[in-house]
Design a protein around this nucleic acid. Structure first.
Lengths: 186, 186
DNA sequence: GTCTATAATTTGATAGAC
DNA sequence: GTCTATCAAATTATAGAC
């Protein structure tokens, strides 16, 4: 959520994130970002010396914002259904923004082409997401008494995979409804 | 499946496909492909004048090979379970090859950065995949009598999304097991 | 912090010899 | 069908003035 007044570094992060979500890590340049922010590429290098530095900063900030939007998974004030709905809504906000991929869904696909620092941050984001969902599914299993055959962590992985794939499908089919249909089907 | 003896165009398609699956459309160059094939970039341009031409050819061939490996979805000699297992096995072969993305999963993420011709072929591939899975889920609904609330097409979309997302997760986590766990959980 | 200028490399693509 | 040679543009990155 871009605040009303942002410093140069923040505006660069906003634009860089949007470009990565649209075109991928290899699909944007310092000049692209600089032009949209309203400065020259040398000024972007002042804030983020290398492209890997910029990539790492974008992913770290995204991770933090994502965690803030999700809140705690063991928050007992919310039901399991409310927590999963919140998770879906965070993804829905991403898609509706401008038919964007999840930042880390995009970078996850490209992971073999990323600087190692950036790839590590992407892994951290997914680890966090799986941990969050695992806690929710553990609570779900506890609440309904029947013995579950599938481990909560596997359910969490499947849940996350379905959301990421739904974003790819919706974009590829050029039909945002596809995401909603899949998200509601989970 | 690269045959023992291939002409220049086929070898180029093999290498280009592998590079796209690893690094994405913006992550490979004519020179990269030429070097691995053992020729010069000008020779690649002889076979595929533009990068978009090469991209379209790669996706079309992938689509054909995928369809051949899947076979007919209404093939009554196979059970619904066998058909879904076959679908999963085609994806598994992709991942095991060398921790690759599905070609169209990668291109689907990058769709906003693709030439329109290539984006159209990606959409065709996903339309085909959803149609194939929809037929299988229709048969499944017919065989077990209970009234289903979720339309077969929605189930098909969800199934496909989960497979694509599972490839992203497995690569990002650098753990191929993740794909198997998710695929078995469907 | 932002600029101009520029270096060093890579990229997609073409011309023309063999 | 493949090569050498080359081009024009774009890319990441740096040096130094303001």
């Amino acid at each position: 959520m871009p605040a009303a007044k942002e410093n140069g570094a923040e505006r660069i992060l906003d634009v860089a994130q949007s470009h990565i979500q649209r075109f991928g890590y290899n699909g944007f340049s310092f000049r692209d970002v600089a032009a949209e922010v309203g400065m020259k590429s040398a000024s972007v290098h002042y804030h983020f010396p290398t492209k890997a530095d910029l990539g790492v900063a974008v992913v770290k900030r995204y991770h933090e914002q994502f965690a803030a939007a999700l809140g705690g998974a063991s928050d007992s004030a919310l039901s399991v259904e409310e927590l999963l709905a919140r998770f879906a809504n965070v993804y829905l906000a991403v898609l509706n923004a401008d038919q964007l991929m999840c930042l880390c869904g995009m970078l996850g696909a490209e992971v073999a082409a990323l600087p190692e620092d950036v790839a590590t941050e992407v892994k951290n984001f997914f680890s966090y997401s799986i941990d969050w969902l695992t806690i929710v599914y553990e609570r779900k299993d506890q609440s309904n008494g029947k013995s579950e055959t599938m481990a909560p962590r596997i359910k969490a992985q499947r849940h996350l995979a379905t959301m990421q794939g739904a974003l790819i499908l919706a974009r590829s089919m050029r039909d945002p409804k596809v995401f909603n249909e899949i998200a509601n089907a989970i």
